[in-house]
Each structure stands twice: as C-alpha cells, then as structure tokens.
Design a protein around this nucleic acid. Structure first.
Lengths: 201, 201
DNA sequence: CGTGATGTGGACCCGCCGGTCCAGCCACCG
DNA sequence: CGGTGGCTGGACCGGCGGGTCCACATCACG
C-alpha cells in the first residue's frame, strides 16, 4: 500500500509521527489531530494522506515509535549485563530515562486509547516486554556463566520479577510523581541477586 | 455542601456511583454520561444534581469507590501477614482478585482521564499506595518480631519492592492479558524473603 | 393538607473533533 | 516544456457528548 513514497514524503511522514509523539507526551489522551497538525506544520489532508485509516493508525505508528525508543534509551547497558557493575550502570540509565520522561507515559495513554479495540497495539507492547525480558534473562545467564551466580539460579523468574518491578516502579512514579519505588525495586532485586552470588560456589 | 440528603437521595447517589464504576470497567475511557445515565436508570439532571461540578467530580467519586475496594478485596489476609502461610494466602487472594478483574483497570483509566488536571485523583492513588505499603511493612515487621527474619532486615525496602512488583505485574497483565508476571513477581519476592529467613538467627 | 424543599424527566444547546473533499502546487521525467 | 502523479492547504461537515434548563413529581413536616 505505502509503496511509492518520495524522500520528501517520507520526511513529512516522519515529522508527523515525531510531532504526534511529542504532543501525546504533553497532552496525553487530550491530544487532538489539530494539535498534531499544528505542531508538525502540516494540514489535515496530509494527516489522512499518510494515515488513511485515521487517528488509530497514526497512534499505532506513534506507539511503535515510542516502543523502539524504550529499549534504545537503555543501551548500550542493557545489551551487556555481564558484570555487577554493568547491572548498576543499567539501573542508573533506567532511572535517568524515566525521571527525564517525567509524569507522562506515552505508551500508557496510547494503549488506553487503542488498547483492546485494535490487536496491533497489544502486539507492540507484548513484543516490547518480551524483548526487554529476554535481554534481562541474557544478562542473568551471563552472570551465571561467569560464575557469579549458582548454576541452579532461576533465571526466568528473576528476569520476570525484575521486569514487573520496573513496570510497577514506573507506574507508581506516574501516579505519584516520585521515583522512589522504581529505585527501591531495582536496588532490591539486584541486591537479592548479589546475595545469591555471595553463597554461590 | 452535601448536607441535607434524604435516604432516597443517598440511595440514588450510590446507585449512580456504582453504575458509573460498572460502566467504566467495561467501556474504560469510552464511557459516556449517557451510558452511566442509562445503566443507573436516572436522568441527566440527576447526574448533575448530585455532582454539580460535572463529570470529573463523578469520576473522582468512582475513583474513591474503586480504591476502597482494592484493599478490602485483600482482606482479611492483608491485615494478618504474620506467618509464611498468611503471606501465601494473601498472594493467592491478590492473584485471584486481579484475574477476576480481567483486563480492565478502573483506577488506571480513571487516573488517565482526570490525572494531572485535578489534584484529587492523585491524592486518592497516593493514599491507596501508602496504606497498602504500610500493611505490607507491618507484615514484614511481624515476621521479624516472630524471629522469622533477621533483626537487620530492610523492612521498608522489601515492602516497596513488593508493592512495585504487584503494580508492575498488574500492568503487564492489563497489557498482555496474562497473569504470569504478577505471579512470578509475588512468588519471587516472597521466596527471597524466605531465603533471608533460612539464614536468620 | 398545604407548602416548600428535594428528587426526577427529558428536551435542548453548542463547541469540539475526527473525517471528507477538492482545488492548487511542485518535482520529476520524457 | 508540458503533463502526470504524488504532495499540500484549508474550508467544510456531521454527530457526539458534556452541560443547561425548566416543568413536574414526591416527600417531609407543621
């Protein structure tokens, strides 16, 4: 369908998505097509030219855009969790990223708006979470392979708990404005891993 | 302000709040005053009679209503976390509660809608989380007092991490439809506590 | 019973916002 | 240089939904 897009066209489309993402971060669900149109310096017709299926399609593109950023912002740490130092650096990166993001959750409000209705939104979130947890599990396995954790360590359980802790910490931060729970969760989970290391062979 | 409310008036008001909560669970942010009016078998004028400040005020009342239920649904377990058995019973109650709730988050969508704009919504969530964590901390202290955990155990860190894990597990469940992370988080956190118990004096 | 307050029904209003349409623009290609 | 096709501007529309208004019912109480 979207074959034949000149360079100019692609640039405009990208500008629309970025602007939409920006507006959505600020206004959340209150964001309107007119806000997006204004910020991207385009017109109504362009919005529907590039996203013929309307607002939902645009929001979906924004969701994908934001989802990609989530993991990118944690690199290069997330890809190299093979030492305790790396884990702590990653922890700092996560905290910094979400503190900078402040009290808006791009994916959260996006998901609220197009959640159950379209299957696409759920797929994006599922894929993001799956990849994220995969990275964490790989990191835990790297520690184990390096002799820093016992052979019997429950890798997937640890990764799942870690991911849940992050999500919860972020949720609470969005609701209360305070990052303490995010920090506490990360610190607590990492500390418990290091305890397992202390009794490791 | 709300002095002078006859028994009939109070009943109608309560019926409106309950109906609104029900509709919001199903429709989420798509819920309209007309849906609420229909379900509660009232009329537009009654909605504004009991909530003169409009929709936000009604949603706030619903938020309070839902927040109260969250902790009630965890009782009596949440108030008596003084044995390992009690902790596991509580864990089961939490999982059951959220599995029954399915993939809707009353407070979540409510907060999205009236979040930053009105201070009241944030206050409700903050208070809920504070009380919840307090209960957990009390439970951990009870274990410690019973000699099941070392004297030096980080009570508040454990409680904060546990709460974050629950929130994250629920968030993920809402997004993906699967309760695995909620269970994994609870189980992992409780198991780590029991490990500390194993080396306790 | 009468009377004033409280409770109730529903028609109406109006601004907002997603979506449509068409006329004109500009870039590339022969 | 002309024309074809993607690109752009903006006026316009329709209905949805929060909010208003007023007439009427009902009830508490002396």
């Amino acid at each position: 369908m979207t074959t034949a897009l000149t360079a100019k066209g692609r640039a405009t489309r990208a500008r629309i998505v970025e602007s939409a993402a920006h507006v959505l971060r600020e206004a959340g669900l209150a964001a309107t097509l007119d806000d997006i149109r204004e910020r991207s310096r385009t017109s109504k017709s362009q919005l529907f030219h590039y996203f013929p299926e309307g607002k939902d399609q645009l929001l979906l593109a924004v969701a994908q855009f934001e989802a990609d950023r989530v993991l990118d912002d944690q690199q290069p740490h997330l890809g190299r969790l093979d030492t305790w130092e790396a884990w702590h650096n990653w922890r700092d990166a996560v905290v910094a990223r979400y503190e900078a993001q402040g009290d808006t959750c791009p994916l959260g409000s996006l998901f609220q708006q197009i959640g159950r209705s379209t299957p696409g939104a759920r797929a994006i979130v599922v894929e993001l979470l799956r990849t994220w947890q995969e990275h964490l599990a790989t990191g835990v396995r790297a520690l184990r392979a390096g002799g820093l954790l016992p052979e019997s360590y429950d890798v997937d359980g640890a990764a799942a708990a870690m991911l849940a802790g992050i999500q919860g910490g972020v949720s609470i931060m969005l609701a209360t404005g305070r990052p303490e729970h995010l920090k506490a969760s990360l610190d607590w989970n990492i500390a418990r891993m290091r305890e397992a290391a202390a009794v490791a062979p």
